[in-house]
Design a protein around this nucleic acid. Structure first.
Lengths: 198, 198
DNA sequence: GGCGAGTGTGTACGCTTGTACAGCCTTGCT
DNA sequence: AGCAAGGCTGTACAAGCGTACACACTCGCC
């Protein structure tokens, strides 16, 4: 039935391999140092492959960052889905901030690059927006909306400080902060229910 | 007395003008789009000036980012110094997060670029570290150390979400979160004193 | 076995980049 | 007025970039 002869590419998964190689190069040299040639070398594919599979460097980086954010969102969600009780949910948030699974050094480097890039390329801007939304959605499995916003800020901001602080994560402080926010924003005696005092 | 004839440069302030122009270009095009020529055009100086005043692009960007972080640190500190009571201090933190004075769109864009750049250039890495330290020091004018850490994460993380969220700052929620952290971490009933439960 | 379509690649080109440097121009001293 | 000493600049160059494209190759069908 098909008029075309070869619907299957010779090397399936090649495109993904290129995207991973691109992320490797970005992690190592930053976007300014990321070139077609370096990506091709890292992926061990000919230079022409990049222009064949992608519509220029902007397209390639856009898809690479989308791949990154999709993968991280999945980890984020899986971590929160595994929690069964409110206490476990708080623990999961602490894990996201401190744990060795999420927000690794490589991931933080890539996230910085993505945010920087997003400010100058609308497509990646949309990716970043979607990513923030998905995070909040995952937190929504366990917490009311305002708490989600506040906690997500924590999950976002703390690893950044870790990246430039060399110090250990200090799990206890993170745990205390998470508890303070959850308690304080859900009607605890420490603060108003949420956002109803302005 | 002096052996040299011209100790005063023809155009004082030129160097600073170049640094400001560099930040303008970075804010508009990102580091990957920042070139000697574009900076020179923006600063309205000849191309040769850049190699005369700076030892290459890395040196120039390093000094530009240092200028940026110094300026922002000053605003940060001034805002906190103006607070006279604990309540005013909390309000100041909320101002830093929401206010139109600190963390403007341009500044956030530049901060992203700086963080991304810092991961690949040791000099700017030191600048970023110093910047985080200064922030915490300024918060230390009003809050104990663990609270400083948590609040600084908020000041860092919330504007990031603002940058990709299009929504309004929601001052009330920010204020409630700040209060929850300050209350919860300083012995309030919502949580332990601080970091002493691991 | 031969054919044609569609996948994939090696090479070449025009352009922009960072940077070096020969020399100009301003200036203070004599 | 003349000089000498730098601060400063315009220009030139080699390197590396993104991208186009003519061609090789593979494979199902007749």
């Amino acid at each position: 039935m098909s008029g075309t002869r070869r619907e299957v590419p010779n090397d399936p998964g090649r495109k993904e391999r290129i995207l991973d190689a691109a992320l490797d190069v970005v992690a190592e040299l930053g976007v300014p140092g990321t070139t077609h040639r370096r990506i091709a070398a890292r992926a061990e594919v000919p230079l022409g492959s990049l222009t064949y599979y992608f519509d220029g460097l902007e397209d390639l980086l856009g898809q690479a960052f989308e791949r990154l954010s999709t993968g991280m969102s999945a980890t984020y969600r899986r971590t929160l889905e595994a929690a069964r009780t409110p206490a476990e949910a708080e623990e999961a948030v602490v894990d996201l901030i401190c744990g060795p699974r999420y927000a690794t050094a490589r991931e933080m480097t890539l996230i910085f690059e993505m945010y920087a890039y997003a400010n100058h390329h609308a497509g990646v801007g949309a990716t970043a927006r979607a990513w923030v939304l998905r995070s909040r959605e995952s937190l929504g499995l366990h917490f009311p909306e305002p708490v989600c916003r506040a906690l997500d800020v924590l999950v976002e901001g703390w690893p950044i400080h870790r990246a430039f602080d060399a110090g250990p994560p200090d799990r206890a402080l993170v745990a205390a902060t998470v508890r303070a926010i959850v308690g304080g924003l859900t009607g605890g005696p420490g603060g108003p229910p949420a956002a109803d005092e302005g």
